[in-house]
Design a protein around this nucleic acid. Structure first.
Ligand SMILES: [Mn+2]
Ligand SMILES: [Mn+2]
Ligand SMILES: [Zn+2]
Ligand SMILES: [Zn+2]
Lengths: 169, 169
DNA sequence: ACGAGATTGAGATGCAATATCATTCAGGGG
DNA sequence: CCCCTGAATGATATTGCATCTCAATCTCGT
């Protein structure tokens, strides 16, 4: 899917807030902009950090509240990567069906789509007595090849970060 | 795979601790027993609760430490279900390849195995430049049919619990 | 200008998980 | 059997993230 402009995204957000009788305040706009300016998965606390460094500002409470609203609007989704990490994903606007492959060592994430996998996922879901959602399938793996290519983001040091519980060491 | 007896499991644990020069204390034995007596996924805090109610006892610190050891031994695995929940799974001893299907509404979990899915998972993992691990694939869905049958554990009330963040309401 | 209702933000609170560290324990050498 | 040493434990403090509370502020329609 093509990349919606930030302006279009803000319009969509504004429309959603309006439809709920809510205002699109400058704080909410700032948070929305920050989220959809890049296409990165993020942690709420990270977002707070980033916003604090920027010129605009909003309290932690407002940031969390805005995130919830955006999730309700369908523009943003919560994804989970294990280890108790909670991430939000602004990319479903562009690719509504994408899934995630996560490196168990360094938590590097790669997005992918695969129609055959979608079909199989639906079959299994039904077979087990569930009904499919538009949502989430997640695969774990090891980014060995990415590491060889030196494209593995979280690994400046050469060795993957091991995890003990949720802490990287 | 057949169900290993609790005695066998304790033996395996003891052997692992011994191999690391660690003792298999009564606290560690109590925790291990509690974990492998049933075959339920559990949260660490739940486990603390359960242990407190039982006759034996161990401090929270010891419980968390024992869990880490068991994970290192391969007998126990951390699985993740989204929403920042961290669960541990003692069932990989019996079915080393199983995956999880989770209901987005009520968090009900069903285990399943599917060789075809495993194959496809491996293909995708490789295609994206990762190498497969023995681990985890996770699918989300809705347990509508389970709900109709009244077998959905977490739904005494008739309506699924909605989630706002990690809190059920 | 006024008032109702929405919004914000500082701080308090909750909760899981981890870190600290003084005390206890177990097991081997003398 | 006693002592010593390192392993193990557990009470407590601390951290990190997320949510809650509530008084103050803002917006908009009248
Ligand atoms: Mn994504
Ligand atoms: Mn399982
Ligand atoms: Zn990696
Ligand atoms: Zn359900």
């Amino acid at each position: 899917m093509d990349q919606p402009s930030l302006k279009a995204v803000l319009g969509q957000a504004q429309a959603f807030f309006a439809s709920k009788g809510l205002r699109f305040t400058k704080q909410r706009e700032a948070v929305t902009t920050l989220i959809f300016r890049t296409h990165e998965h993020f942690r709420p606390e990270e977002l707070c950090e980033r916003l604090r460094k920027s010129d605009s500002s909003a309290s932690r409470a407002t940031i969390y509240r805005t995130i919830l609203h955006l999730v309700e609007s369908g523009m943003l989704r919560e994804i989970s990567l294990g280890g108790g990490e909670r991430l939000y994903d602004p990319n479903f606007l562009q690719s509504p069906h994408h899934n995630h492959l996560i490196c168990v060592d360094c938590r590097e994430i790669v997005e992918f789509e695969d129609p055959n996998l979608d079909i199989m996922q639906n079959c299994i879901t039904r077979r087990m007595g569930f009904s499919p959602t538009e949502k989430a399938l997640r695969i774990e793996g090891r980014c060995d090849r990415l590491r060889l290519l030196g494209t593995c983001k979280n690994m400046k040091s050469g060795k993957p970060k091991k995890r003990i519980g949720s802490k990287r060491v």
